[in-house]
Structure formats: C-alpha cells, structure tokens
Design a protein around this nucleic acid. Sequence first.
DNA 1: GCCAACGTTGGC
DNA 2: GCCAACGTTGGC
Length: 162
Amino acid sequence: MARRARRYWLMKSEPGVYSIRNLQRDGSTTWEGVRNYQARNFMRDDMAVGDLVLFYHSNADPPGVAGVARIARAAYPDPTQFNRRSRYHDPGSKKDEPRWSMVDLAFVERFEEVVPLEALRNDDELSGMLVTRRGQRLSVQPVDRGHFARVLRMGGARTRVR
DNA sequence: GCCAACGTTGGC
DNA sequence: GCCAACGTTGGC
C-alpha cells in the first residue's frame, strides 16, 4: 500500500494566546477556532497525520517561525461551533452537517530563536513563499518542501524533511 | 494604535 | 451578481 507523501504547512498562532512554549509544555493541542473557508479546506481535505507544520507567531515581536509541529489527528468537526458560550460559536452550522473542522497538533521542536518574518523575506531561496507576501492573512498555508527545509536550516532545527 | 489588505454580509 | 459597509488580521 503506497503511502501518501508527507505534506508541509505553516500555521499561525498569536503567542499571547498560544505559543510554541505552550505547545512544548502540553505536548499536543487542539486547533479549534479556524473560521476561514480556505484554511478549513486545507485542514479538512489536505492534511494527514504525520504532516509537518511550521509554527508561526503572529502579532508578535518579532513575528516569525518559532518551531515545528506535527499533525497528530486528521480533521474532525470543531465542537466549539456548536457551543453557544464559545467565541467560535456558529449559529449557522448544523450538527448533521458541521461547517468547521479542526485538527490536533503535536509538539516537535522549538527553535533556539524565532526565524523572523523579515529574515524569510530577505532570503533568496524563499522567494514566493506565501507568508512573505504582503497582506497574506491566511492562518493555515501550504509550504513547499524546499521552502520548509530551508526554514528548518535557518532555525537550526534537528528536524529533517524526508 | 494605525491602517492596508482582505473576507463576509446584505441591500438592491 | 454587484458592491458598499463592516469586521478581522496582522505587520509596523
């Protein structure tokens, strides 16, 4: 049985809300609250267990890639969409036809230092990488294998692409 | 805190 | 289907 090739991703989190250190502490986490259709589609349709993720700190100083995570559970319905108390509640979503999906992430490693967005932008090998584009707000993005490997090197990571 | 960029909503 | 109004994201 041929296995699907591992895919590579970037996922944004505000460190004031949930940082790479939080993920390191917790070991794994649920990724609820994504309410953008493009981001949902990537999670629901394209992510699989074992895919690697660049863990990106947004609204941070500096913004940038803080470490690496791994998809620990493939997409399943985000329960917060049905919770009236939740800030992620979606009254338009039906139980038998959930609108929003989520995945679980597991900690892989934390970079010694964040690789700043500016460094990504200044790196020739990373030209075209989505996150370096001005106005790019998507919180879940696919990353080219070569770009992923390059960011790992910039972060001094032990993790390798394969 | 500002504001550009962008997604969503809803009137028409 | 258009598009103005509005809300959010996220760099700076």
